[in-house]
Design a protein around this nucleic acid. Structure first.
Length: 628
DNA sequence: GCCGTTTTCGGCCCGACTGTTTTCAGTCG
């Protein structure tokens, strides 16, 4: 069928060199799905838009290239119709169908779907029967007691919507992974003490280690579900019980984070874990696959007719489906199921593969611990080497090191290394990239470091082109080995700045410069999607914890989660090399540089200029204070 | 709207909990 589909495509989107905005297209498809939901359209059509939206958002290939090469059908869930719509948006920036559809309902009605307890049916009824068009209308209707007595709505439902409104207004947003791990532990640790339970595990996006998590899912194995439900809903961390059933309950913790708990018997624990870990798209595809084999999967078992085949562990289920075990981080329906069936999955990097952390700070700049304390902490984690990459001179607010301090620091490291027989501390620096792309130390000084990590800490509001150019100029410097936190995102306070990733990846590949996955709990930058793209473009990567104290060195684990979600193997990461291999890999960069011509027309930077963006510096200051 | 070991149409993942019309639709994950 596919070869009969329309092959024409509009080239207009490619004229200006900018690729189509897949995130915007994904948002449009999601909005269409929401409008269709409210209008009670065919649920499978709705599902089709949602699926395509999700796959566009997580697309690891360049959308512009797919359009150009007529390969939009490679995206799962994109057929003839949606391919046409993608091309229309890419070419014109708009979609006629969407513009018309938007006119059919008041725009504020979509917001109602964000309120817990209000689904598409209720939203539509509220509009049809009470002319409620937005959240303000709904608040007023509740205040004036207009809802009770409507078909299907009584006291209890009104109260649930009232509570939902309160929650919505407070902002029920996603939280960073680190916070979710902490919140889950507060429930899981006391529950794991119960004598009536067996296995206990987080599930959902927390187990898949997504960088942000909406709510927390906990799965427990027990043959006394009522006792577990009583214990769970009675924990001191519970602020409000939202639902309490025989095997499933839902509560809000003190920070209004929703925590769901589900209890299953031992013989179903694996099936339930598989099911509640998701993702949704992964589950749907897995179940379809089982159906084609004449099998059925639910949260209790994989079965053939009424015959229980397995369910105790996830591994048993994958075995019956004749596929390799899929790590939770991979379960996004991004092609992993197909590879698992062929037993061709990547061997994901594991925390045990990590031999070094190349982005650590000491009390020479804004860290809390001495170089020796950081080194001992790194060695205790099983590393063979670390780099102390303190800030450079112009970042005064973070204690950036002047030339005299650099000499002292180098002497400390040399003395320390003489006493460490099985461990090496590398002399590093996190060097500022200024607003023009110049570095913060002269070339002669940069040459003296074992490792140079370059980063932007100011001038975030420049154009996409300018920011990209700054990073590329840093890559072109023969002494720069790593670009740290490449997109500058800071959860809760700063969006990632826009970059021309295609150009950046090309520059990194051609100059042998690695991109960092920053493990800071508020950064996780690069994110999984960009990281996977970088790897596909042949870019070397490295995980840096960016720890400013010994107790934050463990942030490496968050970075490893990002790497695993990006399908990275140990061979893709500088961290997994021995110190000798690392230094060899770094030396390669210097001999490569003269060959680079086409990446940028600008000369390799030599001047050091002072950073002037005081506004951004103040932001960095507040961030540092928050981290401490 | 997509998709094909059921390939141009017919089916599309599955179940718990809640509130309510006390049998089932709506919501949620």
């Amino acid at each position: 069928m596919k070869n009969l589909k329309s092959r024409k495509h509009n080239q207009a989107s490619l004229k200006n060199g900018k690729g189509p905005d897949r995130e915007r297209i994904s948002e449009i498809f999601n909005s269409i799905a929401r409008i269709l939901e409210i209008k009670q359209d065919n649920r499978f059509r709705i599902r089709a838009y949602q699926r395509a939206a999700g796959n566009l958002r997580d697309l690891s290939q360049d959308l512009g290239t797919l359009i150009k090469e007529d390969r939009l059908f490679d995206i799962p869930g994109v057929g003839r119709d949606l391919a046409g719509k993608i091309k229309e948006i890419a070419a014109t920036g708009k979609l006629k169908y969407y513009e018309e559809l938007k006119k059919s309902i008041p725009s504020g009605l979509l917001d109602l779907l964000n309120i817990p307890s209000v689904g598409p049916k209720t939203a539509w009824d509220l509009y049809q029967k009470l002319k409620i068009k937005n959240i303000q209308d709904l608040e007023q209707a509740i205040e004036n007691d207009k809802l009770s007595g409507l078909f299907g709505i009584k006291e209890k439902t009104v109260e649930n919507i009232r509570q939902g409104l309160l929650l919505f207004k407070k902002g029920k947003e996603r939280m960073p992974l680190a916070l979710a791990i902490q919140a889950a532990d507060e429930f899981m640790l006391p529950l794991s003490e119960l004598d009536c339970i067996g296995n206990i595990s987080p599930a959902g996006s927390l187990r898949r280690r997504k960088d942000t998590v909406r709510d927390i899912d906990i799965l427990i194995e027990s043959n006394k579900p009522s006792r577990v439900m009583d214990s769970f809903t009675g924990l001191p961390g519970v602020k409000k019980i939202q639902a309490k059933g025989k095997t499933k309950s839902s509560v809000l913790n003190k920070q209004d984070i929703q925590v769901d708990c589900r209890v299953v018997p031992a013989k179903s624990f694996g099936a339930a874990l598989l099911y509640f870990t998701g993702s949704k798209n992964f589950n749907i595809k897995l179940r379809r696959l089982a159906m084609r084999m004449g099998l059925k999967i639910n949260e209790y078992a994989i079965s053939s007719g009424n015959k229980y085949l397995a369910g105790r562990s996830e591994k048993d289920i994958f075995k019956i489906l004749k596929m390799s075990y899929l790590a939770p981080e991979l379960r996004e329906d991004n092609g992993e199921l197909e590879l698992a069936l062929k037993h061709e999955l990547p061997k994901l990097v594991d925390l045990r593969d990590i031999r070094s952390d190349l982005h650590l700070h000491s009390n020479f700049s804004d860290g809390e611990n001495s170089i020796e304390e950081m080194a001992r902490s790194g060695r205790a984690r099983g590393y063979t080497h670390i780099a102390i990459s303190d800030h450079s001179q112009s970042l005064k607010v973070a204690g950036g090191l002047g030339l005299a301090e650099l000499k002292k620091k180098k002497a400390v490291i040399e003395r320390l290394n003489k006493g460490l027989h099985d461990f090496r501390v590398l002399f590093g620096s996190e060097v500022e990239i200024d607003s023009e792309g110049n570095l913060d130390y002269p070339q002669g000084v940069l040459e003296g470091f074992d490792i140079v990590v370059a980063a932007i800490h100011s001038g975030f509001r420049q154009s996409k082109e300018k920011l990209t150019e700054r990073l590329i100029r840093a890559c072109l410097n023969p002494h720069v080995h790593i670009i740290a936190h490449p997109t500058g995102r800071l959860w809760g306070s700063r969006e990632a700045y826009q970059l021309d990733f295609k150009r950046l990846f090309k520059a990194c590949r051609e100059t042998n410069t690695a991109l960092e996955i920053n493990g800071d709990s508020l950064r996780l930058d690069l994110n999984d999607i960009n990281c996977r793209r970088a790897r596909a473009e042949g870019v070397r990567l490295v995980i840096g914890s960016d720890a400013h104290s010994t107790d934050r060195i463990s942030q490496m684990e968050l970075g490893v989660s990002v790497a695993r979600r990006a399908w990275l193997e140990a061979k893709d990461l500088l961290n997994c090399l021995s110190v000798e291999e690392l230094l060899r890999a770094i030396r390669k960069k210097k001999s490569n540089i003269p060959a680079v011509g086409e990446v940028s027309s600008q000369a390799i930077p030599t001047a050091t200029e002072k950073i002037k963006d005081e506004y951004q510096i103040s932001k960095i200051k507040s961030k540092n204070q928050r981290c401490k």
